[in-house]
């Protein structure tokens, strides 16, 4: 089976990357403190906003906690798997090491997306789930269609869509590196953009909402699981999430194919 082979190679890469990362022990403590501070700042920014009002665009502060939780959980994938792997891809393209990748009998794109996971980021996933649980328990879920199990099922489905959306979108943009050679800047910019999406796109004006669903769909990705968990998920959101996930998956695959064909091996 082809897919199985890819999965085994990706797992092996993940293991190697994890042991490399675990060599920098002091980084763990910095990392732990860092995650706690990030969470603190997120909660502080919500507190600052809700000092002045009880509701922003129909979202209460408890609902916002759920959004922050999703932001953390999805961030674990964005930063911990996609970004770090793409950073390696971009560096390999610039140095020409990507040549070796293409020579190996394994799907290069599948490996590129997950080749260098950062194990510390699993902490973000745990923290995200805790924050979501806290927000949901304060906000109450009974209002959601299908009750609590229905809402959780919908949230898991939407979260899967969200992971596909960000992974495909990041790959799509990182593929630009095949043309421009310099790609670290793009990844940093994407990171920076993701970092500020701790707000549901529903509170934004129409144009911005549309932009954060299509041009930079990470806004949609953070919002839809949170909508499912706060009883706000409607058919439009589900459709948007599914459509974007499918479209981006296809687009990233097509662009990757074209890009690899164009790759010349810029090695020195």
């Amino acid at each position: 089976m082809r897919g199985m082979h890819e999965a085994r190679v990706v797992t092996a890469h993940a293991r190697i990357a994890a042991s490399t990362e675990l060599a920098y022990r002091s980084n763990f403590w910095a990392y732990l403190v860092n995650t706690v501070v990030t969470l603190g700042v997120s909660i502080a920014s919500i507190a600052l906003v809700y000092r002045h009002t009880d509701e922003v665009g129909g979202w209460t502060s408890d609902d916002l906690l759920v959004v922050v939780g999703v932001f953390f959980a999805l961030g674990a994938f964005v930063n911990g798997v996609v970004h770090s792997s793409m950073a390696k891809l971009v560096a390999d393209i610039r140095t020409g090491d990507f040549d070796y990748r293409l020579l190996k009998p394994v799907d290069a794109q599948a490996v590129a997306v997950a080749q260098a996971p950062d194990p510390w980021r699993a902490l973000d996933l745990v923290i995200g789930i805790v924050v979501i649980g806290f927000g949901v328990s304060r906000g109450g879920l009974e209002a959601a269609a299908g009750g609590i199990p229905g809402a959780i099922g919908a949230a898991i489905g939407m979260f899967a869509c969200a992971v596909v959306i960000v992974a495909a979108f990041w790959t799509l943009l990182a593929s630009i590196t095949f043309w421009t050679v310099q790609g670290e800047g793009i990844l940093w910019a994407l990171d920076d953009m993701y970092d500020h999406l701790r707000w549901p796109i529903g509170i934004f004006p129409g144009g911005l909402r549309l932009a954060l669903s299509t041009i930079f769909p990470a806004g949609l990705a953070v919002t839809v699981p949170a909508e499912a968990l706060t009883g706000r998920l409607d058919a439009t959101s589900v459709f948007m999430a599914l459509a974007m996930a499918t479209a981006l998956l296809v687009a990233s695959r097509v662009v990757w194919r074209v890009a690899v064909r164009r790759y010349e091996g810029a090695s020195s």
Partner: peptide, 23 residues
């Protein structure tokens, strides 16, 4: 590296516009 410049411009505008919209 124009692609870099373009995406950084989008990134800085996005961040500001998000906080602008919240407030």
């Amino acid at each position: 590296y124009r692609a870099n410049m373009a995406i950084w411009t989008v990134a800085s505008v996005l961040q500001i516009v998000v906080y602008l919209s919240v407030w």
